[in-house]
Design a protein around this nucleic acid. Sequence first.
RNA 1: GCUCCCAUAGUUUAAUGGCAAAAUAAAGCAAUGGUAAUGCUUAGAUCCAAGUUCGAUUCUCGGUGGGAGCACCA
Length: 636
Amino acid sequence: MKITFIDGSIKEYNDGMSSLDIANSISPSLAKKAVFSKVNGENFDLDRPILNDASLELILRDSEEALEALNHSCSHLMASAIKRLYPNAMFGVGPAIEEGFYYDVNPGEGIKITEADLIKIENEMKKIVSENVEFKRQELSKEAALDFFSYDKYKQEIINDLEDGVIISTYTHGDFTDLCRGPHVMSTKLLKHFKLLNISGAYWRGDSKNEQLQRIYGTCFFTEEDLKRHLEILKERAEKDHRKLGRELELFMISEYGPGFPFWLPNGMTLRKQLEDYWYKVHRRENYQFIQTPIMLNKDLWEVSGHWKNYRDNMYTSEIDKHEFAIKPMNCPGGLLVYKHSLHSYKDLPIRVGELGLVHRHEASGALNGLFRVRNFTQDDAHIYMREDQIIEEVGNLIRLFDEIYSVFNLKYHIELSTRPLDKYIGSVEVWDKSEKALADACESVGKSYKVNPGDGAFYGPKLDFKLRDSMNRIWQCGTIQLDMNLPVRFDISYIDENGEKKRPVMLHRAIYGSLERFIGILIEHYGGAFPTWLAPVQVKLIPVNNQYHLDYVEKIKELLLDEDIRVEVDSREEKLGYKIREAQTKKIPYQLVIGDNEVKNNQLTFRQYGKQESTTVSIEQFVMMIKSEIKNLGK
RNA sequence: GCUCCCAUAGUUUAAUGGCAAAAUAAAGCAAUGGUAAUGCUUAGAUCCAAGUUCGAUUCUCGGUGGGAGCACCA
C-alpha cells in the first residue's frame, strides 16, 4: 500500500501495517512520541492496521490533540477504577475537556461518591496504571453493542440514538470495556500523571428534566512536570479569585440580604469610576451622546419590546397605583423611547447613544458567582441607529474601538460571528444573509479574522462576540455587537430620508466591557489585584519615617499630589517603617513613598514600586511628572 | 432551580454533647524608627429556627447564605 505523509512524500508499505509500525520504520524515537494517528483524516489508534493506500499523519505528544486523547483515555481509566470500587456503577459520558476530562457516573442505587472518595479512586487508578494494560479497539453491530451494554441504561440510550447499521466501537483495557469512538493511547502506562479534582452533579444528557449523575473531574498530562505546572496554575487562580481579593483589597461585598447584588466599597468604587471615566472619554471622542433611562417602567413597555412574554420570569416586578411595573432587564426599550422622542434626519445618522445602564435580572440562585454572575449589573450599553449602507463602516470603527480598549488592559481577544439560528428567528433570510455579510465585511475591512458560530445568533439578528483571554489563559465573553431586526419594527422607529420619506433605520446594540461588574471581576483576577496605576484605588502611599519630624513635609507632598489628582494616602500610624511597607505591599499599592531626614533635607522623595525591591530618590516634580505620564498613558 | 459539600471573632483557621483556642486586623500603652511583621494590654465569634438531651456550637430536621458543578445566561 502507498502511504502519503503530510509533507507530501509517498512511501510503499506492506498492507496491514499499523501507524506504529510505520513510525518505527522511520525512527523509533518518532514512534515513541506518537500518541495516535490520522489515516485519511480519520482518528486511528497506533496499533490499528492500515489496509489500503492512505494518507497518514502522526499525532505527537506535544500537540493539543494528543493531550486530548490522553485525557480521554484517563477518563476511561477512572471509569474502570470506579467500576472496581462500585461494581453496580453505570456511566454516562466521559469526554476530554479543555484542561482535563470528566466522567458522569451513577455509582449505584443509594451510593454517593464524595470528595473524600477521590483518593480511593485515584489509588485504584494507579493500580491499573501499574498493571500496564493496553487499550484495545473492537467493532460491533448496534445489536451486539446493546447486548453487551445491557447492564448500563445510559450506554444503551446512547447506542439506541445511533443510526441503525452503524458500526459501533468499544475500547477495552484490562477488565473494563467502554463504548467509545476513540482514539486512545496505547497503554495505561502513559496515564501516570493525573489528578482527580472535584465532583459535582450533572444532568443526564444536559437536560434539567433528567436525573443527575455525579460528574467527576480530573486532569492528566504526559509528564509529572506538566501536571505540577497545571496544579500550580489552579492554585494561582484560587489565590487570585476575585471574591478573595475583593475582600482583602476591600473592593466590594455581597450581603446575605441581597444575594447577587454587589455593594461597591470605597476602593472598588474608585476603580469602577476610573473605568467609567475612561469609557466616557473615548466615547465622546467617537461622537457618542449619553443618556440615562429609568430603572423601572410600566409593564406595557415590556409588552411592546417582547420582554414580558419571553423573560417575565427573570424580571423583578412591582405594582404601583394598580399598575404593574417592571425593573429593566435591558436598556434598549428605554433607549428606543428616547429615539422616538424626536424626529431624525438621514443627515444625523449614525446616531450613537451610550448608556451605562443598571439592569436587574433574576438569575437562578445557583448561577450566582461573585461579580461574574450577579442580579444587578451595569451594561456599558450603546445603541446605534443608522442606514443600511453605513453598517460596514460603523462596525469597522467599533471593532477598532473595542481593540483600543482591550489593549489598554492587555487583554488578547478573538472575534466570533454568530449567524442565523436554524428555526427560531425573525425577518427574512435575505436580510439575515445581508446582515451577516455586513458584519463579516466589517471585520475584514479592519483586518480582523473571525470564527463563525453557525446558528448561534440571537433570534433578532446576527452578532459579533469578543472573547477575551486573560493572564491565566481563561476565555471570557465580554464585548458584543448585535444587529437588531426586531425592536426597530416593534417600536416602529424611523428617520426621514433625503426625499422626505420615513425609513426604518438599522439598529445596533453593543457593549465593550459587557457588564462593569463582571469586567471588574475579570480585571481583579487578570491583574491579581495589582492594578495598573491609573486604576489603583490608592496610587501612592506616603510613609514618614518619623511622625514627629517628617509629617509636615509628608503632608506637603500629599497636598501637591492631590492637586495633581493623584490618589494618595498618608500612613502616619505609630508603626515601624518595615511594617508600613509590608502593608502597602500586601495592599498592592503601586507607589510607596518613604520620607525621612534625607528627603526633607534635599526636598526629595524616595519611592518604591509595588513588587519591586529597589527604591529611587527623585525630586517631587520629577515624581509627579513620571506618575502623571504613566496615568495619562493608562499604564501602556 | 438541581446534585454534592460547607457555615466558629472583621478575616483566616482550631476544638468540643458540659467555661470555645489561636493568628491577623481593631483599640489602648510603651518603644521614635530608613524599605515585608517592635513589645505588652484590652475587646471581639459558634448563621437562623425547631427537635433529641439534664445540657447542643457539636447530633437530627427545616430555612438562609456560601462553594464545586449542572441547567439557565435576552
